[in-house]
Design a protein around this nucleic acid. Structure first.
Length: 559
RNA sequence: UGGGGCGUAGUAUAAUGGUAGUACACCUGGUUUUGGUCCAGGCAGUUGGGGUUCGACUCCCUACGCCCCAGCCA
């Protein structure tokens, strides 16, 4: 047993190991990720993507991307494109195996005819209501449809007519003839085809009958020679039907395996409700940085690696669980800490005048680009008489343990000098608008030759060289830990989920930022918003803050 | 009440008959020119009850708890 296998030993991998030992699939592993293009992918899908592509990769197998596009009234091409982009961005490659359920409509139709000919399927004229009423209940068996005994010939003829558009929506369905008294409701003569006179995003008006999920899915898996068909827990009840169809047809038969979908606290994963947030403009779109969508996370500044690490980290089981969203944030911090270039940006500026610094002087100081990675090198940052520091880095009446700036206190400006605050300038309403400080020219670079220590180190930006930017600070979208469970999830929207710092000042190296996530030292990780940065206006999104033990201490101990 | 699943620290997740481990969270301390990172230490768990066994998270029985299912959605 090698290291890799030890790390990756979730229950699905164990099944694969067993299959490998028994030679069940001739050592083949072939999975698929089968999204329905009826919305954007979210972090929950990411778990499934990482599982399916990941398990194929780890076992030298392959994974297909397959659109389960069997319901034209909900599906759109826009979603297809976004899904392709998102899976690609996560770093997975389906090579030439991009498939659509709609590519198999003809074959599915032929299979249905086969079932009819075997006497295992029939056309039912009952209405939707009637079918539901006759299905029975959890405790009572259902009633058989009066059309259950139609002849094969009649069924064949009616099915042709269905296909040819001779009936209206809902007039007839094709049903499997199984058992109306089955304890599993899914087996009580489930619908295989329904009539939908709707334009499909790929097949146009070629079809007016569309296959139901249960009928279609196993066949899609079978056609693609999938070995392990991995889906979520709620389909456990459908497995007997999945198996029944494939057994009736006596064709290649993949194994369906169910795992628990991802749940995150303070996060809502329902596609329907996410769509509502978008449609009702509670967020700016599917890619709003507060959305749990892949596109939202991307715009927020998440990296594919962080998401993949997270998916690996939370594991795969059959237990319903709710993962703490801070683990997703931690996965991001972990990745970004190693790779993000450090820069200085003042979000909420307070002007500082160094009274003993020459009026017109600007000097360039060396700053480390990434202390975690010496290869990232250094850069020059301009220093001058007037600077900005963070409002929150000054307190007129500081509490114990506050080791930033206060009247008479000395702190270090990162990579620059020690400064001491001598005077606090206020406006008429008593607000602090400016600090007058003196610097110690001996401390250039940030250390004192006399060995003198300061506790605080502040980030800063030179006034003359500062770049203006709008910075958006995001917080969780919902206040409630389980927003999906409440009746009115909109009532739980966090009114402060996006705070804007309109007057942020950034160091000059950020005049033309790359499309990567930076660390603003002592603040957090930020990425330029490519959508909203326009005509000279820079907008940055905060992906996640840095861990802040001072904020925690302050919160726990009051003042 | 029928059927299908699931119960291990606060939250997740390992251990498949042999020392209950890991991560995050939480608490201490150390290092630090980011109150970041990093390092060291600590707290804390097998749903209850029986049984089998030298030995049970693991096997058996039973009780309890939680999740899913009555779309012509997926």
């Amino acid at each position: 047993m090698n290291e890799v296998k030890k790390e990756m030993n979730n229950f699905i991998q164990k099944i694969i190991n067993d299959d490998s030992d028994s030679g069940k699939w001739n050592n083949r592993v072939h999975t698929r990720f089968p999204p329905e293009p009826n919305g954007y992918l979210h972090i929950g899908h990411a778990k499934s993507i990482c599982l399916n592509f990941g398990i194929a990769e780890k076992n030298k197998g392959t994974c297909n991307l397959r659109f389960d596009d069997t319901n034209p009234v909900k599906e759109e091409e826009e979603y297809v494109q976004s899904i392709i982009e998102d899976v690609k961005w996560l770093g997975f490659d389906w090579e030439d195996r991009l498939f659509y359920a709609s590519d198999y409509f003809e074959q599915l139709y032929e299979f249905a005819i086969q079932l009819i000919q075997d006497g295992s399927a029939y056309i039912c004229d009952l209405s939707g209501d009637e079918i539901r009423n006759m299905r029975g209940s959890l405790n009572e068996p259902g009633l058989e449809s009066p059309h259950r005994t139609r002849s094969v010939e009649e069924n064949l003829e009616l099915f042709h007519k269905m296909k040819n558009g001779e009936f209206g929506n809902g007039e007839k369905v094709l049903r499997a003839k199984i058992n109306m008294a089955h304890p599993n409701l899914n087996m009580r003569d489930p619908v295989m085809y329904r009539i939908l006179h709707a334009k499909h995003h790929r097949t146009g008006n070629d079809w007016c009958i569309y296959p139901m999920y249960d009928w279609a899915h196993g066949l899609e898996d079978s056609i693609e020679r999938i070995t392990h068909s991995i889906c979520t827990l709620e389909f456990e009840d459908h497995r007997p039907l999945y198996d029944w169809y494939l057994n009736q047809l006596d064709i290649y038969h993949p194994q369906q395996i169910e795992f628990a979908r991802l749940n995150l606290n303070f996060t809502m994963m329902s596609k329907r409700k996410l769509k509502q947030l978008v449609d009702e403009n509670h967020v700016s779109g599917w890619d709003d940085p507060r959305m749990p969508t892949i596109s939202g996370l991307r715009r927020r500044g998440y990296t594919p690696k962080a998401i993949r690490n997270f998916a690996e980290d939370v594991g795969v089981t059959k237990r319903d669980s709710i993962i703490d969203v801070v683990r997703l944030e931690n996965a991001l911090r972990e990745d970004l800490n190693k790779i993000a270039p450090r820069v200085m940006g003042v979000l909420d500026p307070l002007k500082v005048v160094i009274t003993n610094y020459p009026e017109d002087k600007t000097e360039l100081l060396k700053a480390v680009n990434n202390p975690e990675n010496p290869d990232a090198g250094k850069r020059d940052i301009p220093f001058s008489k007037e600077l900005y520091i963070e409002q929150s880095d000054f307190m007129e009446d500081p509490p114990r343990k506050f080791f930033r700036l206060g009247p008479g206190r000395e702190v270090r400006l990162r990579y620059a000098y020690f400064i001491t605050c001598n005077e606090v300038i206020k406006n008429k309403s008593g607000e602090i608008i400016e600090l007058h400080c003196t610097y110690d020219s001996e401390t250039k670079g940030g250390s004192a030759p006399d060995g003198r220590k300061v506790k605080g180190t502040l980030h800063w930006v030179s006034v003359n060289d500062a770049i203006d930017a709008e910075v958006r600070l995001y917080d969780r979208l919902f206040l409630n830990e389980n927003p999906g469970e409440t009746d009115d999830f909109l009532a739980n929207l966090n009114p402060e989920s996006c705070k804007t710092q309109a007057n942020a000042k950034l160091e000059s190296s950020l005049s033309n930022p790359e499309n990567i996530t930076y660390q603003f030292e002592r603040n957090g990780y930020f990425i330029k918003d490519e959508k909203d940065s326009m005509n000279g206006k820079l907008v940055f999104n905060r992906a996640v803050s840095l861990r802040d033990s001072w904020a925690k201490f302050f919160k726990n101990n009051g003042k």
